[in-house]
Design a protein around this nucleic acid. Structure first.
Lengths: 349, 349
DNA sequence: TTGATTTTTGCAAACGTTTGCATAAATTTA
DNA sequence: TAAATTTATGCAAACGTTTGCAAAAATCAA
């Protein structure tokens, strides 16, 4: 390995016959350094092509100006959008973002938590895996007063800052909408109940049914990983015998899209014979035909709230207090997949 | 800021009456440490809950076991897929990945390069912005013998390791396919020529036309940012006067999808009146109706080749030699958007 | 001009880990 | 048993930056 060519503050100090501490303070705009000295130092730094060594500064400060983000997958629309918003906002505060993927594996999430701690990130932002029910691997951050913010998929009984969509209301609105559009036999395809987010959407689904005196039928509720493959298998079950349902509320858009595709193969017309509502407003729901109704979770707003909460925690390192969950509004976007029946009657003049 | 509770190797050394150098060597499986000592050290480390400080090790070694990745946007299908593959492969080698987005901004790319250098990443993987034509900001990595690998959007005259799809062939196949399906008036919507990848796809387009004695018409070639908005504006131009083209080859799928949507609004039938081919096999091309033909770039293969090349460079830090570009195959996926005309004739018995 | 006060800078140590070289301890050989 | 050789461990310094405390320099007031 050839010798490094990198300049350090020692080089600057020698060129100007100053101490390294003066150079460091000048480069960091310390108020106790004269403007004249500061100017000389910065000029020489530019002349020598000096670049700071973040590892050294981080070691000394025990801070890295870096935030760790753990999401299940960046190929999913919602996490990718939020990641982008978070990165752009953090940049305004001079922080850098390390994006990590758990691939929905609990073991990988633990490894990532340890790795990010070892890298001394100044804060952690997490959307958990589908299967994370024990959150003790995050204790190391909380014990050391390093801020942690959870978003979307969040812990249930773990006192930490949480920012989530209104999942209960989302499930309620999606189901009520289907009912308003005439559906009386509504399937709900949910994610696994190990993840609290889906528990709430199911609760919203049940509430809407109850409010309209529609019985909750256990064989119209499915719990699964929300992948295309799982959705396809679930469709086989749903449409294996008549009577078919007249509405389906899917807890993510990949599932809703798959239901649509399955109906195409068995010649069930959407929305005439079956109405569909998805979740998260994935861009695909707009371009598919017919476009799919979906619950929008405002990822941009969530991303911004996440960063604001994180900055607040970083800048006010008081002892941990009780955290109140922060709820981001949701909105049902009605599209053709759940359109009202077309009236075939004509009034005579 | 409260006092840290973290244990260091000094704590382990004191507990066992060993030197810190022995503890360090034991934890790193140095062959000069006895198995008995190694076991005692590792056991005590576990007992004390020791976690290494990556900043300290990185500073001492001038290595961080971290790779920096710069892509235009992670919300785009191709970069997101490659990022995921790269991260998973790097994990097998004990490396961590920092994913950064340039948001297609040259200035942001420069800032990210400097930041990643400051963080002392052991290697850099880059897909450049649309507008990067001066690559000197990467010199700092090459001067310091830190491996750099470019993929997809790559430099043209800059001696560095490059892994890219066969863009020339992709443009050629897409256009030939349209010709074989009967198109004679083919539009090509390209990205900006500041990016070499699009230069090659245009060249393939032109070659296919020439081989079939179809004149290249300048008003059937468009250069733009490949966004939905730009594509919509371009469609307005294309379909502002007759005769309309009978085929469109778009240099990315977002553009192809937008063309399809535009045709729906002006009642141009796809594929009967206009055939469409996109690029990158975005999942949306499959679920839209009719499904869009698209050039698949095998992102998984590309991601694996990127990591393999990077590992080779990291493990063989010889002086820079001439690099040969590595070409990843592509394949045209024919779908209904470019289907052959349906024959309406019936033979009489 | 001298003393008091304020501003600016330097010394030395800290941060946690790794490793070259020297030395101590253990093992082998004569 | 002594000498030679091998194995295992310790000392000290390195890595680049930051900062508490002390001291030097500059400025102000009497």
């Amino acid at each position: 390995m050839s010798k490094r060519t990198e300049k350090t503050i020692v080089d600057i100090a020698e060129e100007l016959n100053l101490s390294v501490s003066t150079v460091s303070r000048a480069l960091n705009d310390n108020p106790n350094i004269s403007a004249r000295t500061k100017e000389k130092v910065k000029k020489m730094a530019r002349k020598l092509g000096y670049r700071p060594n973040a590892l050294a500064a981080g070691l000394r400060n025990n801070k890295s100006k870096t935030i760790g983000l753990i999401v299940p997958r960046i190929s999913m629309f919602f996490p990718a959008t939020i990641s982008t918003i978070i990165q752009n906002k953090l940049q305004e505060y001079g922080y850098h973002l390390i994006i990590c993927q758990s691939n929905d594996s609990y073991e990988q999430e633990i490894a990532l938590v340890n790795t990010l701690y070892s890298a001394r990130v100044d804060g952690l932002v997490v959307s958990t895996t589908l299967y994370t029910t024990d959150f003790s691997h995050f204790d190391i951050f909380r014990t050391n007063n390093i801020p942690v913010v959870f978003f979307d998929r969040v812990p249930k009984d773990y006192d930490v800052k949480v920012i989530k969509g209104d999942d209960y209301l989302g499930g309620y609105l999606a189901t009520s909408h289907l009912i308003e559009r005439g559906c009386r036999d509504i399937v709900h395809i949910s994610g696994p109940l190990s993840c609290n987010l889906y528990v709430e959407r199911v609760a919203g689904y049940k509430k809407a049914l109850q409010q309209h005196q529609i019985p909750v039928r256990k064989n119209r509720l499915f719990y699964q990983e929300l992948t295309r493959e799982s959705a396809w298998q679930t469709c086989k079950k749903i449409f294996s015998q008549k009577p078919y349902p007249d509405g389906i509320f899917a807890s993510n858009d990949t599932t809703a899209i798959t239901v649509m595709e399955y109906c195409r193969t068995i010649k069930v017309k959407v929305p005439e014979e079956l109405k569909i509502v998805g979740y998260s407003n994935d861009p695909r729901t707009e371009i598919i035909s017919p476009p799919i109704s979906s619950v929008d979770q405002y990822p941009a707003m969530m991303g911004e709230r996440v960063v604001a909460a994180l900055m607040e925690l970083i800048n006010s390192p008081t002892a941990a207090t009780k955290f109140t969950p922060e709820i981001i509004p949701i909105q049902l976007l009605e599209r053709e997949s759940s359109a009202a029946p077309v009236k075939h009657g004509r009034k005579k003049k």
